[in-house]
Nucleic acid binder design. Sequence first.
DNA 1: TCAAAAGTGTTAAAAATACACCCATGG
DNA 2: CCATGGGTGTATTTTTAACACTTTTGA
Lengths: 229, 229
Amino acid sequence: MSVKYRHPRAALTVDCVVFGVDEEDLKVLLVERGLPPFQGSWALPGGFVHLDETLEAAAARELAEETGIKAPALEQLHTFGGLDRDPRERVVTVAYFTLVKLSDHRVRAATDARDARWFPIRAPPDLAFDHAEILAFALERLRTRARTRPLGFELLPPKFTLSQLQRVYEKVLDRPLDRRNFRKKLHALELVKPLAEMEQGVPRRPARLFRFDANRYRSLEREGFELQL
Amino acid sequence: MSVKYRHPRAALTVDCVVFGVDEEDLKVLLVERGLPPFQGSWALPGGFVHLDETLEAAAARELAEETGIKAPALEQLHTFGGLDRDPRERVVTVAYFTLVKLSDHRVRAATDARDARWFPIRAPPDLAFDHAEILAFALERLRTRARTRPLGFELLPPKFTLSQLQRVYEKVLDRPLDRRNFRKKLHALELVKPLAEMEQGVPRRPARLFRFDANRYRSLEREGFELQL
DNA sequence: TCAAAAGTGTTAAAAATACACCCATGG
DNA sequence: CCATGGGTGTATTTTTAACACTTTTGA
């Protein structure tokens, strides 16, 4: 017995909120739409879910297709099902979000995206559909997540200085942190390990390099730790 | 220009995880399926989303239809989109959850539910589809939520004693709390207000009755408070 | 008078915060 | 020798946790 197509169905899409951090800003990745509706507007990368792929796979595929980014670990954010989100018809979208090293990713637009670019979170362009609402939701979640999981894994190169890590947190939380207390708390978690290596060729005292301890991370994850900054 | 029906589409459903607390236990509301698949199995109340209703409205409608409960404030939990969730075809479900006063709600089964009953969270029956996974997800969220929002609003009558409130938290968090510290923290939030009234006809010293201060709740909500028990 | 839960403060430990000076390097 | 950010510890305050006895009622 099948219930297929007894009624018209909502379309199902996925959208991705991809955050990155560089020296200046917390940024979000957007694409310029090449097709109607909202042709020429900026929007979150995303598209229709295929019948034979999971939601997460769909999000990863669309992100790769439209921006060239192979994202690790997309995390589900929320599902948006307002009646008039899309002027064409009823479309329900499952939003995902992730963090990437901005420097790693030369974005390149493709398929139905005319362009793909990073925008500072402080000054995003007008967005298509209800994507401004989705972005706001994601930003709030990102800030909560900063307390629940380490951010640097995704956002920094394998070897980094504590100041770089602190800057990441300051960009995300949008407030300054005390250097000594930041280090104290970080070391208490034993989440980062000092390397023998130092920074090279900087016009000041070179900083020690650290790396994340992935094992320690996993065991902290199990316990459900909290990093109160 | 329309893209309607160019491709087969996944079906979209909603499912509701409804928690209640009574003197003995934290409980969850389940329905016995009257139709295949999983006919005769217990499952979360839920069903197909109509084209002209929001996801939340669909969840509220299905819950009312199948169990007779008019739930306040359903909160979106997560969207489950595994490929083989439903043996018939691809079905994506948006899960919601809420809390209700168990005593208020005489459940009555209807439409395609053969029966509707409360089950203690410690001993749920085998569940249809991937509903065991959804329930586990909801339970974890409930416990997180206990720290972020007051629970008693939904779970207790308008006038209640502090011991009743403490029992709710103990059931939800599944651990004992210190009575004096519990009261201290609660009063610090100024979330409950003492009434002139006392309990009546109990075979022991009668307890003072309290009520929630809804205004205070709203202002705490804005600030983003945390109730660490 | 007994049983059962209500009510109530203090102390000790832990965690969070505020804060200032010397150091190493490249230019 | 200067400018720049790197590195480090302590004192104070705040928060959390542990803990026991007296009271009121109905039976």
